[in-house]
Amino acid sequence: MNAEIDRQLHHRTIRAFTTQEIPATTIDTLVDVARHTATSEFLQAFSVISITDPQLKTAIAQISKQPYVANNGHLFIFIADQHRNAIIGAEMNQPENKVGGANKFLAALADATLAVQNTVVAAESMGLGAVVLGSILNDAQQIIDLLHLPELTFPVLGLAIGYPDQEPQYKPRLPKKFMHFENGYQLPEPIVPQLKAYDAEVHDYYDLREANRRVDTFTNQVKRSLLNVPEKRAQLLTILHQQGFLIEDDH
């Protein structure tokens, strides 16, 4: 055990930030951390956009349905980006490419996601809190329009950081036996009865965090999520195609 592992084992999502301004040097450092993330084939197929325009932050907060996105702190949007590599190829007299295929999209998606996590770890080591925002995909097309994203790019995750103005409890995680296997997938079944103690732990977590609101269990959350696809998220595949992604490699 060391300080870094202890920090990661006690990670908490922070959704409330103080009004303390984050120095520009800190933002630059975090961007440098993102830039130095491991990357598939060294293609560095992601980009990071800092959102500094208050009106733009408000618009993204409305898409996310998370008001805290517009309040204080700093907002990053991480982009899967094969556009840059396509342009490089065209300028080097290689106009044809397969960067819209599933292989290259998944590589760009992984690059962007890894960069987000590296940035979170770095931010927390500097005394900042962070919240990762998958909710920007509530309206991916509007994000694309707001940020003027070209073909062969796609918004993956948002990341809001700032100085914490809350101390939330640690959210309990699934027991290891449901997530870590050896030499193959070995999920213990039946699952639900074996999750009874974990459900109780999650129920207590929500009860303590939000005593005046509905409490919940993990298995109930999973059950509800199985058919829950917000209307505009159902359009994601179409939008990916419009952005030039997930095009069959032999087309």
Rank of each mutant, 00 (worst) to 15 (best):
H36M: 12
D28W: 06
T25A: 12
A59N: 00
L30P: 01
T26M: 11
F46I: 01
L56H: 03
P67C: 12
F42D: 11
E21C: 04
I27G: 04
Q55M: 03
K57I: 01
V69G: 02
I49S: 00
T26Y: 07
T25K: 09
I63F: 01
V31L: 15
Q62P: 00
S50H: 10
E21L: 05
E21N: 09
F46S: 00
Q66E: 15
S47W: 01
I51P: 00
F46C: 02
E21D: 10
R35Q: 14
T39C: 10
T25R: 08
T37R: 03
P54L: 08
I27R: 09
F42W: 13
A61L: 06
T39Q: 10
K65H: 15
V33Q: 07
D32V: 14
S47M: 05
I22R: 01
A34C: 10
N71K: 08
H36F: 13
K65Y: 13
S64H: 06
K65C: 12
Q44R: 06
D53Q: 08
S50W: 07
S47Q: 06
D28S: 14
P67V: 08
A61W: 01
H36E: 14
A24L: 06
N72Y: 08
H36D: 13
N71G: 03
N72R: 03
A24C: 05
A45M: 04
S47T: 06
T25Y: 04
A24D: 10
A70R: 00
T25M: 07
A70T: 01
S40A: 14
A24Q: 12
H36V: 05
N71E: 14
H36Q: 14
A38I: 01
T58H: 04
P23H: 09
Q55C: 01
N72E: 09
T37E: 03
T25H: 07
S64D: 13
D53W: 02
V31S: 07
S50V: 15
P54T: 06
S40N: 09
L43W: 04
I22G: 05
V69L: 07
D28R: 10
T29P: 05
T58L: 06
F42S: 12
L43V: 08
D32P: 10
L30R: 09
R35E: 12
V31N: 07
A61N: 06
D28F: 09
S47V: 04
D28I: 08
F46Q: 00
Q55E: 03
I27A: 11
R35K: 12
K65E: 14
I27Q: 10
F46A: 01
D53R: 06
I27H: 07
T25D: 13
K57R: 11
F42H: 13
K65R: 15
D28T: 14
D53C: 06
S40T: 12
L43C: 13
K65V: 10
V31T: 11
Y68H: 12
I51N: 00
T58V: 03
F42R: 12
